[in-house]
Design a binder for these strands. Structure first.
Length: 423
RNA sequence: GGAGAGAUGCCGGAGCGGUUGAACGGGGCGGUCUCGAAAACCGCUGUCCGCGUAAGCGGACCGGGGGUUCGAAUCCCUCUCUCUCCGCCA
């Protein structure tokens, strides 16, 4: 959510940002409603003042044993008028709130212009392209042949795009999770948290998934709980409605969670393998920081995620998203894409964003600075990293001509020293 | 799932429907004292919104939302959460 004050002062900037992100919002309508609201509020508060004074007088008169009936009658009229105003205000607020919640965050200065992913900029690349002397297979062939992934039984149990990992496949999944959590907690200084996988509506709205993406979420209608599409939701909401001490900042959290996505708009896309699935594992990084440090913090968060891929020996590139590809809530975002030689594609395994104060304002996370002033924190998050596509990059990248797959050195301690997965 | 109790400021904890933004205690901050510290004493200790360049003025807030009333932290309804007991259960 943007600061209403800021929108009042810079409506054109807000409109431009919304347009750049392909969001339709009626900023002019908001400004009209807002000015109506303020007018009503002022009137209402004047009346309340009168009412407060009258009440005080009544109280005093009663103590003196005097008759108050005429003043009470007068104040009754006042009270009714106040009620009128309150009703008008109450009628106005949902629409204001509604528009406000649908206005996207403003891209940072250095975010490149552009309509879609084709305008994104590759900032850097890491690793060497491996030369194969045979045609590398896609992961679904490798995974099935080695008994790591059972697609048929997964869909029997739950449906399409619910892979069942088994044997060393399941083991490698767990190895990856542990490896990443250990790296982020022991080397990068994050606190490990294990949050609930179902969250309430307030949390979903807080981080911006609602109201926009409701149809993309699994939900339990009975209890109005949502299955988290990312750990960002529960972890960022840890500090909802809190005022932190400046001594607490910065806060770094890392969390493993399963993630659930209906992928409602994506039917028919990436149907094979585990590129796009309804349930997947992810290790997430979340930061709460002082505003003036958030862009440095974004760079270091990105590096923390990159290190995962480096230690796994995976070729990847860092992509800076253009305005048109930037998500609703973020000011600036880098994607990490790992190379998958079997499907011959760059796969997005991480997305690292700075939201500035957009989420913090929406969910009320602030801090008290050294002068005692209360300000919004800046929030950041990034995947560190998402598992299925990382697993793809490993299986396809480490495959041998005989159909076996090498285990990245960094994972071996988590897999009883196993170096090769053979049929 | 059944029965009951509760939710107040940074924390603990009061609060006959009428100067209660809220007693009292603790913590924190500032000051006096001290070479320094402790102790003691004094003062301060909220957030949001509106108007205003500011000082300031006004309004709201005692879990959330409604209601009764001239007036609600206090009464009523409802929701959420916490606790105790019973049942069920990984």
């Amino acid at each position: 959510m943007l600061d209403l004050n800021f929108i009042r002062k810079h409506p054109e900037e807000v409109k431009k940002a919304a347009q750049g992100k392909h969001e339709k919002v009626d900023v002019d309508r908001l400004l009209v409603l807002d000015s109506n609201r303020r007018e009503l509020l002022f009137q209402c508060e004047q009346l309340r003042k009168e009412q407060n004074e009258a009440s005080k007088t009544i109280s005093q008169l009663k103590k003196q044993g005097q008759d108050t009936s005429s003043l009470v009658a007068e104040t009754k009229v006042l009270s009714d008028r106040i009620r009128d105003y309150e009703e008008k205000l109450r009628a106005l607020e949902p629409e204001i709130e509604g528009i406000l919640l649908r206005i996207p965050n403003i891209p940072a200065q250095d975010v490149p212009p552009g309509e879609d992913a084709s305008a994104n900029i590759v900032v850097r690349s890491w690793g060497q392209r491996r030369k194969f002397r045979f045609k590398p297979k896609p992961h679904w062939e490798l995974g099935t042949a080695l008994g790591l992934i059972d697609f048929e039984r997964g869909s029997k149990v739950s449906g399409a795009a619910f892979p069942l990992y088994r044997g060393l496949g399941a083991r490698m999944e767990r190895a990856l999770i542990n490896f990443m959590l250990d790296l982020h907690t022991k080397k990068h200084g994050y606190e490990e948290v294990f949050p609930p996988f179902l969250v309430n509506r307030a949390s979903m709205t807080g981080t911006g998934q609602l109201p926009k993406l409701e149809e993309d979420m699994y939900k339990t209608t009975e209890d109005d709980l949502f299955l988290i599409p990312t750990a960002e939701v529960p972890v960022t909401n840890i500090h909802r409605d809190e005022i932190l001490s400046c001594k607490d900042l910065p806060l770094y959290y890392t969390a493993y969670t399963a993630c659930f996505r209906r992928e409602a708009g994506a039917y028919g896309k990436d149907t094979r393998g585990i590129i796009r699935v309804h349930q997947f594992d992810k290790v997430e990084l979340v930061k709460f920081v002082r505003p003036e440090t958030s862009y440095e913090e974004l760079e270091s968060l990105l590096k923390d995620a990159e290190e995962v891929l480096q230690l796994l020996g995976l070729e990847y590139r860092v992509v800076k998203l253009c305005v048109g590809d930037l998500s609703f809530a973020s000011s600036k975002c880098y994607d990490l894409e790992a190379w998958a030689p079997g499907v011959e594609r760059w796969l997005e395994v991480s997305s690292c964003s700075n939201f500035e104060d957009f989420q913090a304002r929406r969910i009320n996370i602030r801090f008290r600075d050294e002068q005692g002033k209360v300000k919004c924190v800046h929030t950041l998050n990034g995947s560190g990293v998402a598992l299925p596509r990382t697993l793809i990059a490993i299986l396809e990248g480490y495959q041998q001509e005989d159909g076996s797959v090498g285990v990245p050195e960094a994972l071996r301690p988590y897999m009883d020293g196993l170096a090769v997965i053979k049929a």
